[in-house]
């Protein structure tokens, strides 16, 4: 077990299908610095998220999470706000790559809809396990392939490549 494979534990924020990139990173704020833009994450459907989300919290959602634009800020806003992972029934492909490249685990789980708001969640991305401590349930998710977990563990593609440069 590598040193960064510890599970994360956090409260769940729960949303539905087709959470798009404009909800995560609204266009009118795209020219702002990341910390400003992140304040508007989820604003169109939930104004409490960016204010109340805590470091380590988890976002759970339905199908096609991150659909829409290629804007990496959609995933980066979640990282900026301290979200430790996103669990969804499926992800839009560009968002999925962006998330892993930024060190944000994106877990594909067909049982994502069993999670309700505020559930205490921990995840083991390598093993493909999600534990719902509040409901005393365990869900299977698709394990992130080892070659991609190396990037996630490093904290994203940039630190991964920098480490590689050093060695």
């Amino acid at each position: 077990m590598s040193e960064t494979a510890q599970t994360t534990i956090g409260s769940a924020w729960v949303y539905g299908d087709n959470i798009d990139t404009d909800i995560l990173a609204p266009g009118p704020y795209m020219k702002k610095p990341m910390n400003e833009l992140a304040k508007h994450c989820f604003e169109a459907i939930d104004t409490s998220f960016a204010v109340e989300v805590k470091a380590g919290d988890v976002v759970a959602a339905g199908e096609a999470f991150g659909i829409g634009s290629s804007r990496e800020q959609a995933a980066q806003a979640l990282v900026e706000l301290g979200v430790s992972c996103v669990i969804a029934k499926s992800f839009a492909r560009i968002f999925y790559r962006n998330a892993l490249n930024l060190g944000l685990p994106a877990l594909v789980c067909s049982e994502a809809d069993k999670i309700t708001k505020g559930d205490q969640i921990s995840v083991q991305p390598e093993q493909g396990i999600i534990i719902n401590h509040s409901k005393n349930e365990q869900y299977q998710c698709e394990a992130i392939p080892e070659q991609l977990m190396e990037i996630v563990r490093a904290g994203g593609l940039m630190p991964f490549l920098q480490n590689k440069n050093k060695s």
Partner: peptide, 29 residues
């Protein structure tokens, strides 16, 4: 892209030849 001229206000309705109609995409959420 919600960046240039032509944004729409709270409660306004737009019919657009563009490709996306996500909530808030063209202005007010």
């Amino acid at each position: 892209a919600g960046m240039g001229a032509g944004a729409i206000a709270n409660g306004e309705v737009c019919l657009s030849s563009t490709s996306r109609n996500f909530k808030g995409r063209m202005g007010s959420p």
